[in-house]
Design a protein around this nucleic acid. Structure first.
Lengths: 333, 333
DNA sequence: ATTAGCACTTAAAGGTAATAGGTGCTAAAG
DNA sequence: CTTTAGCACCTATTACCTTTAAGTGCTAAT
């Protein structure tokens, strides 16, 4: 591909992103100081290379998936956020009082707001969380609360009723054993060690150890079960995009966005770069692009993804995520 | 309105609910053993009374809001759920291990599933929750967890960092004061009593009482801030309804369902009956009907609402909510 | 290598007519 | 007095046709 073809492709992609209609050769004459016939020749070449497509034999060109891909990899220029968007982000960042999950949720809202696309988060407790302590707080003769804390500051509580024939002190005793044995264990390993290391010991010291064991197993439940925190924000934002003008298309997309099973197909990133998945690459829907980046915040880590049409404003979205990324890194793990 | 008119209205409403197209006079001849002209006369009468409407001068009739209202109040017959739907509900009810919020969420899913409408819950901690105890659990020199429990079994925890110049024991001392003074106070009153009864006392006993006071205030935050638990399930279900065949309509509805501000306009019921709000009565959208009933479950109370088109299958929806209601009552407050 | 010119293609827009499904009203029948 | 047949009339929907706008590919000349 020669230079003129590159800049032609760039122009076509950017023009299509703005106008959302197939681009004809005449539109580009001025910019390239040549006749429409010349442009047509070049366009035909780009089409043969697979970067452009036509809807029908006599229509203008639209970028193909490969075209978008070439664009984001080689042609796209970094973009600055405008003042207004910047301000919104900064307002978020300056609020120190948010909990982790609130901060992420707020992020999604702002991203969705300034991009007009849908944003989602796929979160999970970080593997770096290790058990710090477990506390048993009695409420009355029959009820107690188990409090589980990790070193990264995640705290969960769970309430239990215990059978009257089990002495509350037995429960407390076991909590002490667990505290001695398991503190420092990564959360993801707790279930296993509870079963193989702790259970044999308490089975000797406590009579109805099965019931009591169950309590502790349940107490860790929130951490053990693959606690995927999925949020989808701004589903209706996508309806502002002109590609969603047909009821069937709208229904298809909204149903997908509502279906957690489907959303989970957007898998987590494995690094903290910004990655772009166009159309069929997205693993979610052939008509959308998914842009992802990872975060790690207060003991929780995951991926933030933006879902937009394939003719997404790539520059802008990447700019937003860059700023977000920088902020998250400062705020630190 | 004479008997024939009543049964005519009933027939028209039910037929329209099924067919979703304006009902013409010919369709009803057979059923009423008379000519279309007779039906037309009666229809004209019903229209004059305000129970029927026409889209244009020569179209069939559709029920007006008043028509639907008359129908649900006087004409509708109770309906039995079919076996399949019943089974789904029973499967839910038999699962004892669900937490309150999970149970409600699951309810919404099932309702939405069997009705093909959208369902929402507006929940709140019951006023009957009174403070049972507050515990302070130290994590290390700087961090602690405050655990707040109510008699109805709601437990919340919140983590804090405390300034190094404040002694952890001071915090524990204050928690003891609060436990002595406020146990038994309705959750909704805690903020007030904290301010007017507790603050004056601790201000004498603790030096930096403002900071410590803040910790306790925050600990109660989840209860104090009007903690409205709003869930909307099955937004896309509404798109299966034939009235949503135009992009603009779809967009309008989906945006509304996504907007918590809007959803909150569907206010809570004030009793446990099933109430029906048709069109403009719904306070949400002129094109929908909202059916509501209250629940009270495990210290949380609120309203479950079903949002469907005005030509909702009223009998079926009421049947579902009736069963749900009975179950919730058994399960008790 | 570029360009003017031309035949050709298609989607979208506009116009007209036909059709289907309905009404209201009048006058006759029951 | 109620019911009904009959008819003129109304409107949305559909189908069909034509025109227009936008664009292409190809050829031959520059």
């Amino acid at each position: 591909m020669d230079d003129r073809q590159k800049s032609l492709l760039k122009e076509i992609v950017e023009c299509y992103i703005k106008e959302v209609k197939p681009i004809g050769s005449k539109h580009l004459c001025d910019k390239f100081h040549c006749s429409s016939a010349t442009i047509r020749n070049e366009m035909a070449a780009l089409e043969k290379m697979g970067y452009l497509e036509k809807n029908h034999i006599s229509s203008g060109r639209i970028p193909s998936e490969a075209g978008y891909r070439y664009y984001v990899e080689h042609l796209m220029e970094p973009k600055e956020l405008n003042g207004e968007d910047m301000l919104k982000l900064q307002t978020l960042f300056s609020n120190k009082n948010l909990t982790v999950s609130d901060a992420i949720e707020k992020c999604l809202e702002i991203i969705s707001d300034i991009t007009n696309y849908t944003s989602i988060s796929l979160g999970e407790y970080s593997d770096e969380n290790v058990l710090r302590q477990i506390n048993i707080i009695p409420l009355d003769e029959e009820k107690l609360v188990a409090l589980v804390c990790t070193d990264k500051g995640i705290v969960k509580n769970k309430q239990f009723s215990i059978p009257t024939d089990i002495n509350m002190m037995e429960v407390v005793k076991i909590s002490e054993i667990i505290n001695k044995m398991l503190v420092g264990t990564p959360i993801s390993m707790v279930a296993e060690r509870l079963e193989y290391d702790v259970k044999p010991i308490i089975s000797k010291q406590v009579e109805q150890y099965e019931a009591v064991y169950g309590i502790f197993y349940d107490a860790f439940h929130d951490f053990i079960s693959n606690n995927e925190n999925i949020h989808v924000v701004g589903k209706s934002k996508m309806l502002n995009q002109p590609e969603y003008s047909e009821p069937a298309e709208i229904k298809r997309l909204i149903s997908k966005l509502e279906d957690e099973e489907q959303v989970r197909k957007i898998e987590k990133n494995d690094n903290r770069d910004i990655s772009i998945y166009i159309g069929s690459e997205s693993n979610f829907d052939d008509n959308v692009t998914v842009v992802k980046t990872n975060y790690s915040l207060g003991g929780e880590e995951g991926t933030i993804a933006i879902i937009g049409p394939k003719r997404m404003e790539y520059g802008r979205v990447v700019a937003v995520l860059n700023i977000l990324n920088k902020w998250l890194e400062e705020k630190g793990d």
